[in-house]
Amino acid sequence: MQRVNMIMAESPGLITICLLGYLLSAECTVFLDHENANKILNRPKRYNSGKLEEFVQGNLERECMEEKCSFEEAREVFENTERTTEFWKQYVDGDQCESNPCLNGGSCKDDINSYECWCPFGFEGKNCELDVTCNIKNGRCEQFCKNSADNKVVCSCTEGYRLAENQKSCEPAVPFPCGRVSVSQTSKLTRAETVFPDVDYVNSTEAETILDNITQSTQSFNDFTRVVGGEDAKPGQFPWQVVLNGKVDAFCGGSIVNEKWIVTAAHCVETGVKITVVAGEHNIEETEHTEQKRNVIRIIPHHNYNAAINKYNHDIALLELDEPLVLNSYVTPICIADKEYTNIFLKFGSGYVSGWGRVFHKGRSALVLQYLRVPLVDRATCLRSTKFTIYNNMFCAGFHEGGRDSCQGDSGGPHVTEVEGTSFLTGIISWGEECAMKGKYGIYTKVSRYVNWIKEKTKLT
């Protein structure tokens, strides 16, 4: 034993070699072989497995989906700052455009905790909710729209109204504003409101030439003092309507412009014939205590009207009353817009006519005020429907199939267009061939041609 100890002390290297040989010859039971080890760690190889990531292109799944990435790591994937920024906006807080917040056709661009709407022409605001041009839906104005110097929408209202708090709607500024039905039992019968379409306001006024200088022999019209197929109006439903009495009662109609003036057809009036105007009328054979009678003290036909040349060209006249009318729910003026808007309103496509005229061709006159909704007829169809001249200051309205029309005794009465609950004068009943005849239409004086003249002559002093 002493000898062994001496050998170990003198030859430590020998001992180490012996131990190493023993270990190498022993069977290893701690580690699995290569094949079995792979069965336990069965993990798919990654895209760049075996390579240094710093030297390969980034992978979106590896960089940002398996674990949260930084902007720089995302930049490695896209290799483009702009594309990385677009991805980053949604990656950080989701897609803010998912709810489609942009209105009126706006395009949404996502941002971090926010979004941006790219608005089409005519709109602005956070969600493109603000109209900035009158060309689109009248700028959301209830009545009139004008573009300011910086191309912003400025709404306005006709006389007797003021802008509401929203700067879009119009509200009454006087007790009985024009064009409004205020009798409670008839307010439910107000005709369907007309909503502004998209309009090209630059070209809204037709490029028409008034044929002022045409000389033409007097034409022989049949029954051209021209509501057939209409309905009984309720008291106060058309408070701007008046009836004219002269040699015979209810020979023509008219509309209240203001307390002192009536507008009617020029062919209705004769110099030297006494005319009485009755406002607030409903049943011409009954006294309903809503009527107001006034005498006409002055007749002003349009300066281009000449019955000797043509009885229905420039067929418009103004009547001055001896005493002002007292405005109330049964006696209310009709609204008159400017030339541009009167023309736009007419193009809405349908209007209402009213009167006490004959209820059928050569038949009896109506006792109760009649009204009828009539569609506008395109000019080409209008011209083809008659052998008589249709001037540019006239328009056609009615039904091709016949059966409904204005008729004798309705002449001078109103053709009105309702705009968001307020009625505007767009025409004056003038003439036609018979009444409600198939293929024939009622012919009306186009008020847009005469609004400046009306307003100039009827100013209240």
Results as ranks from 00 to 15, higher is better:
residue 54 E to G: 10
residue 312 Y to N: 07
residue 180 R to V: 04
residue 13 G to V: 14
residue 105 G to F: 04
residue 339 K to G: 07
residue 70 S to V: 09
residue 460 L to F: 11
residue 171 E to S: 07
residue 348 F to W: 11
residue 398 G to S: 04
residue 212 D to I: 09
residue 143 Q to H: 11
residue 255 S to A: 04
residue 267 H to I: 02
residue 177 P to F: 01
residue 436 A to E: 11
residue 229 G to T: 04
residue 272 G to Q: 07
residue 184 S to A: 14
residue 48 N to W: 10
residue 262 I to T: 02
residue 380 A to C: 06
residue 432 G to H: 08
residue 430 S to H: 04
residue 141 C to E: 01
residue 38 N to F: 07
residue 349 G to R: 05
residue 118 W to I: 02
residue 59 N to G: 07
residue 79 E to H: 14
residue 197 P to T: 12
residue 62 R to W: 09
residue 409 G to C: 12
residue 458 T to F: 01
residue 278 V to D: 03
residue 189 L to P: 10
residue 25 S to R: 06
residue 101 P to F: 03
residue 371 Y to S: 10
residue 400 H to N: 10
residue 195 V to H: 13
residue 323 E to S: 11
residue 241 Q to S: 05
residue 341 Y to I: 06
residue 318 L to A: 03
residue 65 M to T: 10
residue 45 K to F: 04
residue 81 T to C: 04
residue 172 P to D: 04
residue 405 D to I: 14
residue 152 K to G: 12
residue 54 E to L: 04
residue 200 D to R: 11
residue 279 A to D: 01
residue 443 I to P: 02
residue 340 E to F: 13
residue 237 Q to S: 07
residue 453 W to H: 00
residue 5 N to M: 12
residue 201 Y to F: 14
residue 89 K to D: 13
residue 165 E to G: 10
residue 77 V to E: 15
residue 328 N to S: 10
residue 42 N to D: 15
residue 157 C to G: 01
residue 287 T to W: 12
residue 208 E to M: 10
residue 211 L to N: 09
residue 400 H to S: 12
residue 317 A to Q: 01
residue 9 A to H: 13
residue 170 C to M: 00
residue 165 E to K: 12
residue 317 A to D: 00
residue 307 A to E: 07
residue 189 L to E: 13
residue 410 D to L: 08
residue 286 E to V: 09
residue 111 D to Y: 08
residue 266 A to I: 01
residue 298 R to F: 03
residue 295 N to E: 13
residue 425 L to P: 00
residue 328 N to P: 00
residue 255 S to W: 01
residue 305 Y to P: 02
residue 232 D to C: 08
residue 14 L to E: 02
residue 314 H to I: 01
residue 3 R to I: 10
residue 330 Y to M: 08
residue 48 N to R: 09
residue 91 Y to L: 11
residue 24 L to P: 02
residue 198 D to F: 08
residue 355 G to N: 07
residue 119 C to M: 00
residue 389 T to D: 08
residue 193 E to Q: 04
residue 390 I to A: 08
residue 137 K to A: 07
residue 20 L to G: 02
residue 60 L to M: 13
residue 424 F to Q: 00
residue 314 H to W: 07
residue 223 D to F: 10
residue 322 D to Q: 05
residue 154 V to H: 08
residue 252 C to D: 00
residue 178 C to W: 00
residue 403 G to C: 07
residue 289 H to Q: 07
residue 321 L to W: 00
residue 284 I to H: 06
residue 324 P to F: 03
residue 113 N to D: 14
residue 181 V to W: 07
residue 71 F to R: 12
